[in-house]
């Protein structure tokens, strides 16, 4: 296995972990908040809300803007 595939496997592992946490939150009674719950908590304050929205804007800037 080359480093290229090891790196990709790392990303897939993180994505799988996130999917498992979301499934645990949605389908079981495990004490795991959903992604929506986390977001709702993060955006309760103005700084949190602006921080989340700026993070979203940064994704667009990073992939498309000069």
């Amino acid at each position: 296995m080359t480093w290229h595939w090891v790196t990709i496997a790392g990303y897939l592992l993180v994505v799988a972990g996130i999917a498992v946490l979301q499934l645990l939150a949605a389908k079981t009674r495990a004490p795991v908040p959903s992604f929506g719950d986390l977001l709702a908590r993060a955006i309760r304050t103005r700084t949190g809300r602006v921080g989340v929205l700026v993070a979203w804007a940064w994704i667009g800037l990073h992939f498309f803007a000069r």
């Binding site: 946490l21 645990l24 939150a25 986390l38």
Partner: peptide, 12 residues
Amino acid sequence: LPRAGTLAWLAA
């Protein structure tokens, strides 16, 4: 939010 579950999210 439940602490353990929140920490799991942060870790991921």
